[in-house]
Amino acid sequence: MSSQLVQPSEEYLWEQYEDRKQQDESYLVGMWTFLSTEIMFFGALFISYAVYRYKYPEAFYAGHEYMNVALGTINTAVLLTSSLTMALAVHFAQKRKRWMQIGMLVITMFLAFGFLGVKFVEYGDKFREHLVPGYNFEWNQANVNRLEASTAPINIIPSLKAGSLPADSAISHDAQMYFIIYFAMTGLHAIHVIIGILIMMVFIVMLVANHPSVRYHMPMEMLGLYWHFVDIVWIFLYPLLYLIPR
């Protein structure tokens, strides 16, 4: 089933290490410790999500109805596929098939761009629908307009005191909380995707130039771990943000 990687053990060895085995394992442990901090990094947002969903279950349900489930599902598929191609890129790096590695990285990068593109469309929709907290959030206004057109005779938006909180303060803050968390979580995730793309670009350039430091496969494995981690985060974001049951 599995084959063994054969590389001269003293090649690409930093001076502080004794041998390549030690160095490879150090890279791995280092990356995993870094990923454990990343987990806690996102963790603070996940716990905020949990607390507010616990406090405002209706608002979260109402907020999630504005999500485009189709786009979310497509994005999950895109990211899972990019994870596959990234895994293959690492595989070819281990086997030292440089051009295959480059090919897989390029595909991964395009998938990542695709993910961001879909995200861009989704964010754009939120802007148009006045669902961006702190910028143009008008949840209530929408409801109100609908109502005013039909039944209610009373103008119910109170005038705001000068110098008080911004205009969206007079609305259903609970639903806004859903969108704050939505943007915080997907935003932080998107930042990670962008960082991933930047690193991939550097790798591709260096690989094409056949730079010695990327001939060593561990940096590529680190990139792979990072990218799979980004994928794992999204695996949880997708049901939490898009598929909230009643």
């Binding site: 089933m1 599995s2 084959s3 063994q4 990687l5 054969v6 590389q7 053990s9 390549r20 085995k21 490879d24 899972l80 596929t81 994870s83 596959l84 895994a87 293959l88 595989h91 281990q94 086997k95 496969h217």
Partner: peptide, 19 residues
């Protein structure tokens, strides 16, 4: 000697299909 595991492509593809 360096002993580093390389996962075969077939495993990746199977996992991907399950995902």
């Amino acid at each position: 000697m360096d002993t580093h595991h390389i996962t075969p492509i077939s495993v990746y593809v199977k996992v991907y299909v399950i995902l």
